[in-house]
């Protein structure tokens, strides 16, 4: 059976549900504390996940303190080795502050997840957004390879989620895009709130050039089941949710399940 390791930093808070959905996707998953470096190293996990939360309470800047933790040496090495690495929300912030994403020059900080930019408000925002994958992502990301072309609704919950890059890198970054914010039917996002944080090029998730590392701001683990989808949400997923039978409500996957299904598929193919 394929294995995954969820890394808990001081202040992480999505480790349990993340591990739960990975297990439900058929991947043997364990949670490791930030200081269980040896155990983690011995585990030789097939994939690593940095869960959401507030590592070190986002002090100084979200993700930056966790990025300096020793356990990230190991994650860095595994990323370079090509193992699938996923950072969700705060985990994404850690990956960006570690220089793993966009990762043109692994280790160098070449992007930022800046504070949300939205009209008339600042700070945290919880909402549901629509996301769409890119061709590159479906082709090379172990986390997105099972996605289709249609838009999926996924919740966000963050205060610092705006992808930013140097002016000169804007062309280059396009091939690193994993997911973009979009309209209900996959049309390009028309500013706020479809793009909930002012992220450049509407980027919601970003890969390294090889595609094995993915930093995603929305929370796919929170919409693993159909029953987790809001009943009032617009679009086809809303229809599906409102008209679901009791059986479907429980058994049908939610829109986020496909991320973990992608990994299971990828590991299944690669581990034989």
């Amino acid at each position: 059976m394929s294995t995954a390791a969820v890394i808990r930093f001081p202040g992480s808070n999505c480790e349990f549900e993340t591990a739960r959905v990975l297990r439900k996707s058929g991947i043997d998953t364990r949670i490791y504390n930030w200081n269980e470096i040896e155990k983690l190293s011995d585990s030789r996990a097939d994939a690593y996940i940095l869960p959401g939360g507030f590592s070190f309470q986002d002090r100084i800047r979200a993700g930056v303190v966790a990025a300096g933790e020793s356990i990230m040496d190991l994650i860095f090495q595994e990323a370079v080795n090509g193992k699938p690495i996923l950072g969700i929300c705060n985990g994404a912030q850690v990956l960006v502050e570690s220089g793993l994403v966009p990762g043109w020059k692994p280790g160098a900080i070449q992007g930022a997840l800046a504070s949300n930019l939205s009209p008339g408000r600042s700070g945290y925002l919880s909402d549901w957004v629509y996301l769409k994958s890119t061709d590159e992502a479906r082709e090379k990301s172990p986390w997105l390879c099972a996605l289709g072309q249609e838009a999926i609704p996924v919740p966000i919950a963050h205060a610092e989620g705006r992808f930013v890059f140097r002016e000169d890198d804007l062309d280059k970054v396009k091939s690193n895009i994993g997911l973009v914010y979009c309209g209900v039917n996959g049309e390009a996002a028309e500013g706020w709130p479809e793009n909930p944080n002012g992220s450049i090029l509407d980027i919601a998730a970003l890969m390294n050039p090889e595609g094995n590392v993915l930093a995603i701001m929305p929370h796919p683990e929170r919409c693993f089941h159909l029953w987790q989808v809001p009943p009032g949400i617009k679009g086809p997923w809303g229809e599906l949710r409102r008209n679901a039978s009791l059986k479907d409500l429980e058994e049908k996957p939610g829109p986020g399940a496909v991320v973990f299904k992608s990994l299971a598929k990828y590991l299944g193919e690669n581990n034989g």
Partner: peptide, 16 residues
């Protein structure tokens, strides 16, 4: 200025 994971702390040069 944070240039890499192991150097710098207070600002991310891409956004600050």
């Amino acid at each position: 200025v944070s240039k890499s994971r192991s150097s710098g702390l207070f600002s991310n040069p891409i956004s600050q």
